[in-house]
Design a protein around this nucleic acid. Sequence first.
RNA 1: AGUACAAUAGCUCAAUGGCAGAGCAAACGACUGAUAAUCGUUCGACCAGGGUCCGAUUCCCGUUGUACUACCA
Length: 967
Amino acid sequence: MTDYKKTLNLPDTLFPMRGNLAKLEPEMLKAWERKRLYQKIRAACKGRPKFVLHDGPPYANGDIHIGHAINKILKDIIIKSKTLAGFDAPYIPGWDCHGLPIEHQIEKKYGKNLPADKIRELCRDFAREQVEKQKADFIRLGVLGDWDKSYLTMDYGIEAGIIRALGKIHKKGYLYQGQKPVNWCIDCSSALAEAEVEYEDKTSLAIDVAFPFKHNVALAKALGVSVINEPAFAVILTTTPWTLPANQAVSVHPDYDYHLVRTVKGLLILSSELYTGVNSIRSSTIDEKPVQSDLGNPSLAAYCLVNYDLENLGVLGTCKGSALNLLELKHPFDERSIPIVCSEHVTTDAGTGLVHIAPAHGVDDYIVGQKYNLPVDNPVDDNGKFYDHIPLVGGLSVWKATEVVVQELRKNSLLLNSDKLQHSYPHCWRHKTPIIFRATRQWFIGMDKPTYNDASKNANFVPELLDGQDNLRNRANSAVTATEFFPAWGRARLESMIKNRFDWCVSRQRNWGVPMAFFVHKETHEVHPKTEVFLEKIAQMVEQKGIEAWFSLDIAEFLGKEAKDYKKLTDTLDVWFDSGTTHDTVLKSSEQLKYPADLYLEGSDQHRGWFQSSLLTSCAINGDAPYKALLTHGFVVDGNGHKMSKSKGNVIAPQKVMDTSGADILRLWAASTDYSGELTISDEILKRVVESYRRIRNTLRFLLSNLADFDSDSDFVDEEQCLDIDRYMLAFTRAFQDELTQNYKRYEFHVVVYKLHYFCSEDLGGFYLDVLKDRLYTATTTGIPRRSAQSVLFHITHSLVRLLSPILSFTAEEVWEHLTCNTDDSVLLHTWYKFPPQPDVRLLLQRWTRLRELRSDVQKKLEESRAQGKIGSSLSAVVKICTSGEDFALLNSLGEDLRLVIVVSEVTVIQVENPLENGIFVTPSVHAKCERCWHYRKDVGCKEDHPTICARCVSNLFGPGEVRRHA
RNA sequence: AGUACAAUAGCUCAAUGGCAGAGCAAACGACUGAUAAUCGUUCGACCAGGGUCCGAUUCCCGUUGUACUACCA
């Protein structure tokens, strides 16, 4: 008996079924580094149109988490797909290195009493360490980039660039100094950043204060009543009585209703809106006393009167808060007049519906103050004491002042109530003492300040884009209009943020940051008139020695005898300014990159952050956005849609996934998830990803294994000589590639993954390869039918490996090595596969689409027989198809090849007149099974010396080989 | 609390003001020439609720989640 298995062309490859990615990927990374792959790609892409994705610098602190991973992977997929699409797409990764979080790390480790230059030195070292750690992980993800020349915002050149950028913005007239309330710790004598504040319970004195109206006539008019001839008061509640000396207004909500209520203590303005708070304010009082019924609902006014122990003697009038706008009040213990203003931040869950406004002591107050042009006079010094010249409380600490204020109010009969209140209050994280809000001198970039220059000089700036005046807000607005957004809602988000944002406070009182390298006049605080010249000189010094050059600089060297009138500004820049100006310090100065970038890609939080800081600085400097398009991805959450936290224990570390499953699994996950919303990850999800990876990998393996003996130089069969099904699959794959490259272009990677997977399992595994196996294995090795199949498999593999490579970079490279046997080459050095020309494939596609449907109909019937135990393998079956019309013609046209498409041993197609007679009938074959090709054929044994094989095999083995036209 | 985005089968994704479509998983079966693979068949879903409409998975309200902002007199 002959072993016919040896006569078959069975699959053969060294490409392993299991990826063993965790082990192989690091080796491949070494190989990429060894052959300088990134630099090779740059050389190969030279002269092509550029596509610049500018890397938003992650903050150089802590190990990378899954959020970093998704961001870098998406960027990498884009860079690679753009390269394949024929662009020169460089990638220069960056890091954000200055700022408070790093300074904190150093303080935590070394204490906070180090000299400033030592802190900066330690910070610099720390940041460098962090960068190296993160860089190693990013590289491990398979992210290809110029890691040797990555940019750090603490590079001396960039530090100098930041100072120059500040100079440019200053020159345009956007920079100004102003007072703004900040968190202030009395014990630190310093401003605190948000991160240095913690909330704790504190007991404060809550007092209700009556502000006398100055003009009853105006009040009467507002209320629509004829006359008011008793003293009237607007009543406010405050838990910080010490802020009353800085009071500049009383605010009402424009849409709330307000009553003028008669009491024995005078006429009081109180809101008649429903009280919506829980009884947190003086609850004991409320519980004990019934709410006055003649006011009807439990309104704020009703609650207040109960608290004040006053009887409602009648409501004289009612009006909307907006009607009270700009009425004049008398300050309760100062001679000043103050206005009533309107503000949306007034609420009904506590107080009177009227709020005392001290712009120097509260952010909301400050905002309202800006709107109404109220002065930001701050009466409190660095140590929390009122300045000596302040009446009543001069020289007192704010806490002492509280008592004095209360006494004064009581004396003036303007105190309606006072009570102790426990509430959450900000405290200094170091001293654990209550902080205060206090306005200090800060530097701002003005959103609405007119641009100071003639715009015509600026090549990029298009004045007609501006909506109205040339200022930063309008410039930013126009720039947003000119930007493309993925997904589209990003535009509305950025737009509304630009519209509503306040001036950008760019100064910080910290050590680890780029200095605002100004000389300011000791008396007037004005910057030196020659600032422009100085800044350039300083920038040159910083270029040599880093920011330390400024801090160690001798003022006399610069200013000579003027030095005594000026001081060096010790403020540093908000770290967002550093990253926000990378379009100026990195894009413009790099030979590889260009301004503006084609794309910025970050998490959705960066609408508030980097997207905006970059937009503002670029609009200030250039008049337009530093990017043509913005792409946003969501945050990573767990399988239940909840955010990851250590305490919940649902954190998935990218390092762990890479070390167990491999980076390609993480990449496939990242690509398969729709990033426009939140991205879910869990062990189950990863398990599914691994399974889907295996499917793709196995398909590639099968393709490779059937190309083992195929030499593309000598064995290629021209398209027109290929069998019908091969020509169909070629056309199909071309269309498939076109679709996928479009999906790549639109950044729809999850669609790419889905389609790739479908293609591998349905189009290839479930159809084409299934049909092809017989021909590949049993046909004459070098005959046209087999070479035709291999030619198309070659095209498919080359197309597929490229389509995979932006996502499954490691696996694609591994395939590439097996496919080309060239270890110097890389799939990433190529562009999308160029298929041979194939004119007019419409009919071809149509025919086979229908054939596949009919094939699937037969398979259902086969399964029925199989379930009944009539047949096992589909080759053990004989099929009779009764049909009519086009289907008959189509099936019949395949002739003998039809059974090979359906993968059964025998098919007869019968034309019927009546559609009711349509049907598919399956019976077991009565013939012997050919030992070689496993078909059940009547002609098995037709050759005497080979009694166990069929005629087809005989011809393939000893004759001219079988003839096939269709499949 | 406000704003934005999201919600479809166990998982990842589609489509649609008029029968909700895939792949994976699962179940069953076949094969043993892709074999820790492969092929086939089957099973399975519109966020609870309310509204607009002849009709809602789709539009509106609400719920839940996420992000940003505000946490306050």
